[in-house]
Simulated scan of single mutants.
Amino acid sequence: MDEKKLYYKEDSKNVHKYLTVTNIVVFFGVFSLFPSLINSFKFELSSFFAVLLIFLIWLFILFSAISLLKNAKKIREFYQSDKFWNIKNEIKGRADKCNELNDHIEELKTTFVSSGTKNLGKVEYKDSSNYNFKRKEWEKLKNTDEYVYQCSSTVCKNAQAQPFKYICKYFNIKPNEENLNRIEEVFNNFSAVEEGKKLLTAEEDEIMRKFVGKLPKFIDDKQYPRFKKRLGFKEINLSDVYYPRFKFLYVSAGGNSSIETNITLDLDNLSNFIEYLSEQIKFKKSIEGQRALMTPKLRAYIKERDNYTCQHCGISIKDEPHLLLEIDHIVPVSKGGMTCENNLQTLCWKCNRSKGSKISS
Rank of each mutant, 00 (worst) to 15 (best):
Y250N: 10
D319C: 04
I281H: 05
F78V: 14
E177N: 07
V212S: 09
F233S: 13
K197H: 03
Y18D: 13
T117F: 00
S36E: 06
F190N: 01
I105T: 10
R353I: 02
N130A: 07
S46K: 03
L108Q: 04
K92V: 14
Y250D: 07
F34V: 12
Y18H: 15
V148D: 10
G232A: 10
D205W: 01
L101F: 15
F55C: 06
V155W: 10
L6W: 10
N352G: 13
K74E: 15
V26I: 12
S115D: 13
K222P: 04
E137G: 05
L238R: 10
S114W: 01
E320L: 12
G29E: 07
C168G: 11
I61L: 12
R76F: 13
D82K: 15
D306N: 12
A95K: 14
E203H: 11
K70P: 02
I274Q: 02
Y8Q: 14
I317P: 02
R299L: 12
P321K: 15
E139W: 01
F211E: 04
N343Y: 03
F248L: 04
S239A: 13
G289K: 05
F84E: 15
L6M: 09
K303A: 05
K335Q: 09
F84I: 15
K355H: 03
D82T: 14
Y125Q: 01
N262Y: 00
I167C: 06
F49I: 04
Y250L: 02
I61F: 10
V251S: 04
V186Q: 14
D11I: 06
D240I: 11
V148T: 15
E146R: 02
T22R: 10
T261G: 00
K122E: 00
N343S: 05
V113A: 11
F49H: 03
N307F: 08
A65S: 15
E184Q: 15
Q160F: 06
G337K: 03
L199A: 12
K217E: 14
R291P: 08
S40H: 01
T346I: 07
I87F: 14
W85V: 15
C351K: 06
K282A: 05
R94F: 12
K297G: 01
I173W: 08
Y147A: 07
S129Y: 02
